[in-house]
Design a protein around this nucleic acid. Sequence first.
DNA 1: CGACATTATATTGCGCGCAATATATCTCGG
DNA 2: CCGAGATATATTGCGCGCAATATAATGTCG
Lengths: 152, 152
Amino acid sequence: MSTPEHLRLDRQLCLSVYSAANALVRAYGPLLRPLGLTYPQYLVMLALWERDEAPVTDLCARTRLDTGTVTPLVNRLAAKGLVRKTHARDDARVRLVTLTTKGRALRARAAHVPIQMACLGVLSAEQGAHMKALSDTLYQGLVMHERLAGEG
Amino acid sequence: MSTPEHLRLDRQLCLSVYSAANALVRAYGPLLRPLGLTYPQYLVMLALWERDEAPVTDLCARTRLDTGTVTPLVNRLAAKGLVRKTHARDDARVRLVTLTTKGRALRARAAHVPIQMACLGVLSAEQGAHMKALSDTLYQGLVMHERLAGEG
DNA sequence: CGACATTATATTGCGCGCAATATATCTCGG
DNA sequence: CCGAGATATATTGCGCGCAATATAATGTCG
């Protein structure tokens, strides 16, 4: 018997999104390797380049990564001398992640990265914008769903 | 000084796609765990449910995973008794991955998975179709780009 | 004040993604 | 037939994703 429509691999939205995301991360590789960063590390650095200092939880929220990923990742950034971890004065639980001079300096060398990626020219500006909007909708819808399931 | 537009985290298409893909895989978790499958394992099973037997390379191509991922993954599927590995008669290099009876039987229990996912209702049918088209375009463009870079 | 939930972070274990490398086996030109 | 590439698969090492768990500090409410 033949495969029902909905089980066909080429019909799965998830495979398309999954493989596109993986290919995207691979595409960043050649641009980030010279900077000594992986793609998720780059996300955290982007967050810090916007604000020199942030609690781990804040980095998790803005990069959409989880604490199990961010804690060791930040330790690796610290080992490279790009960030430092300090204690917040008002709340002994929170660890502030702070850019070092070296970490701040890396921003200049990273400035070309988004530009180069855009220049791969795989999607037009409108396609990119549309894809971003749909991805954000999907992300937020799924996260919402997780929350609901988590309570019930 | 403030962050230039193109370095702003909330402007990155890649973060949107990346986090959407991760959320999608997480969303499959509760549906696949009862079947004893991870999401990439599910992709390989989908490929095999379409055709009982396939060389590893063929599975890689259809699931868009690479050999370093698929080889140990298939070994885990074999350990669960869902597949078997045999030798092709005509070419001693290729290993055929074959569904076992147990693996074939699992298809019935997986039939509801795509339906349940669709019923999360995060994207409309048109949005889903559009997102799939854009994702495939992005994937194929990036893979094309990898190939070109790989040669030069 | 003291039990108890909540919050911030860290840790562990397993599977995956990927680059790099290794090892057969095949193909093809000479 | 022989040797140079090409092809199919496997292996290794590291970083990440995530669920589950642990630990400590904070907040809250009786």
